[in-house]
Nucleic acid binder design. Structure first.
Lengths: 158, 158
DNA sequence: GGAAAAACCAACTGCGTCGCTCGGATTTAA
DNA sequence: TTAAATCCGAGCGACGCAGTTGGTTTTTCC
């Protein structure tokens, strides 16, 4: 899971698409104007989204894009996975399968990154386009014993 | 919170430092050899870590680095924040303060990214170097039944 | 049939960061 | 004095990002 601004643009565009879903499909130029994203860049993003089966296209005048599924069935994690490069597998990164040489002394942090990846994916797949539109963010996890909040200072704990 | 491989290298190095902490400080060339990271690159990372007050240096032969605090008082989030660029503030990204033009229609995803940032920071600041060494990852949050319907819990933030 | 609106497609560009190298300088133990 | 180590800055090749250019195809509408 890559978490670049590219994925953010894609999610912005998809939320916009979900918001303005009508009988007629939504054209990319409309989205581009509303979200202030380059039209051609949007085209590239939506090419990937279409290949991933998240949107359907209608060509010709009056055409545009539609969500392939309902907004409450389209998860943010899917959008980001669709547009981002599948991570460059640097050294021990991710590669859930075999990788990581099993030499634990060199890869003490393996479990940490794996768990972090899980956390991120878990969160992003718990949020759908509908949730973003309705501003229903799950906001769970809020309490964890002895863990200081993000913003403020971190008094030692644990 | 940036989550690049740069931060990962820094955490790897810091875990290595914590693991081999003895009476004598640990030299970067030792860490470089064990973790297979370029020495000069390590130097750059540790320059930042030192400025952030996470490590202390000892110059001269037999010198090296020491943790400035105990390993259970050094959080992974601090390490990553120390070495990563403070994010380029693209459009509506993060910028916890004023930003984001308050034009909600253009920034429907603002709350989403903010909440995601909170999740990541919360997780990474719940893990200390000591935890990584002992492989005690908190692994909480693990519920979220199946692929969870998020709307179930919580009303919006904002 | 022709014009125009839209999706499609491919190549290229400027830029910034990453991971790293090189060439030093300073400090300090032996 | 030598050598081990931290310090420091400049530069480099590669890559992804965001965008641009310049098309083509499909399809609606007049």
């Amino acid at each position: 899971m890559k978490l670049s601004t590219k994925g953010r643009y894609a999610v912005m565009a998809m939320v916009d698409l979900a918001r303005h879903a009508q009988a007629k499909p939504v054209s990319l130029s409309d989205i581009a104007a509303r979200q202030e994203i380059s039209l051609s860049y949007l085209e590239q993003l939506f090419a990937r989204l279409r290949r991933a089966g998240l949107v359907k296209s209608v060509r010709g005048p009056g055409g545009g894009y539609r969500l392939a599924r309902l907004s409450m069935e389209t998860r943010v994690s899917e959008i980001i996975l669709a547009v981002d490069e599948p991570i460059s597998a640097t050294r021990c990164t991710e590669m859930g399968a075999t990788g990581c040489r099993a030499d634990r002394s060199k890869c003490l942090t393996h479990d940490l990154w794996e768990e972090l990846g899980n956390q991120i994916h878990l969160f992003l797949s718990s949020v759908t386009l509908h949730d973003v539109l309705e501003r229903k963010l799950t906001t769970r996890i809020t309490e964890a014993p002895g863990v200081p909040g993000p913003g403020s200072s971190m008094a030692a704990a644990s």
